[in-house]
């Protein structure tokens, strides 16, 4: 169960990290959210064979990581969790797209492999930028920024409660696993015939717990809007960050560097 308990600490690590006071943490949450959304859109906008361009976009998370003083190890651990889903989406590209597009050390590389790699890099970059955003801003501040940007209340509450549900789910999963393990000594993993009841229990228990947490929120006046203490102050530093980031993105997106990298690859 160390896996689930460990994962729980990992989730909370981001919450705790978001309370640091580095340069990146002090920037306006709304500006950081805007920059991250634009970054994700630009990364996704690259064509499926533009591997070079996508690689060039990795400059942003690398710089953010360094400015936020976030240990790369912590980021990588979280990005790896999302990778199986990305790989699942692109796994058949090399099978269906076999036309050789380029040669690397004399070996022919098919379009399928390039598009597969491009997809993976896109996944790594978009997930990294989102994790860095949560780690430097905090989920409540992000939710508040979303409302400032006029995103629908229901959508924001859904994101916020889903985020909270992850830790509820993990806590319940940890206690179910402990109870199972104590009565199933010497077993590796969970026997397949009890997966059904166990997952059913998990769903029902987390549902009940989720309802109780929600009750606690509405009893204290929660009406769907997450109100943070002080209004966000968007200082000159934040505007400067916005300008530099956008200029950087555009240069990479449109520049010759990207074209050269793409031609080389």
């Amino acid at each position: 169960m160390s896996n689930i308990t460990g994962a729980l600490y990992k989730i909370r690590y981001l919450d705790e990290f978001s309370r640091k006071k580095t340069l990146m943490h002090r920037l306006s949450p709304t500006i950081k959210l805007i920059v991250t959304l634009i970054y994700i859109l630009l990364v996704v906008s690259f064509g499926k064979y533009q591997l070079g361009g996508v690689i060039a976009m990795s400059a942003y998370p690398l710089i953010m990581l360094s400015l936020a003083e976030m240990p790369a190890k912590e980021l990588i651990k979280r990005v790896v969790v999302a990778m199986p889903f990305v790989m699942g989406v692109g796994i058949f590209n090399p099978v269906f797209d076999r036309d050789i597009m380029t040669y690397f050390l004399g070996i022919g590389i098919s379009g399928g492999w390039i598009s597969f790699l491009t997809l993976i890099v896109k996944g790594v970059l978009t997930v990294s930028s989102a994790i860095i955003l949560v780690g430097t801003t905090g989920i409540e501040n992000i939710a508040h920024s979303m409302r400032i940007l006029k995103m629908p209340k229901i959508f924001v509450v859904l994101i916020l409660l889903t985020y909270r549900y992850i830790s509820v789910l993990m806590e319940e999963a940890a206690s179910i696993w402990t109870a199972y393990k104590l009565r199933a000594p010497g077993q590796k993993g969970i026997r397949h015939d009890v997966w059904g009841p166990l997952l059913g229990q998990l769903l029902l228990r987390t549902y009940d717990r989720g309802i109780r947490v929600y009750d606690a929120m509405i009893l204290r006046g929660f009406d769907g809007d997450f109100r943070m203490g002080t209004a966000f102050v968007t200082g000159i530093g934040s505007y400067l960050f916005l300008l530099i980031a956008l200029a950087g993105f555009l240069i990479i997106r449109l520049s010759v560097i990207t074209m050269i990298l793409d031609l080389l690859i």
């Binding site: 705790e16 905090g138 909270r164 109780r212 947490v213 929120m217």
Partner: peptide
């Protein structure tokens, strides 16, 4: 069930 924010103050 009653404590769901990141800090006691919040």
């Amino acid at each position: 069930d009653q404590l769901f924010m990141n800090s006691v103050y919040e």
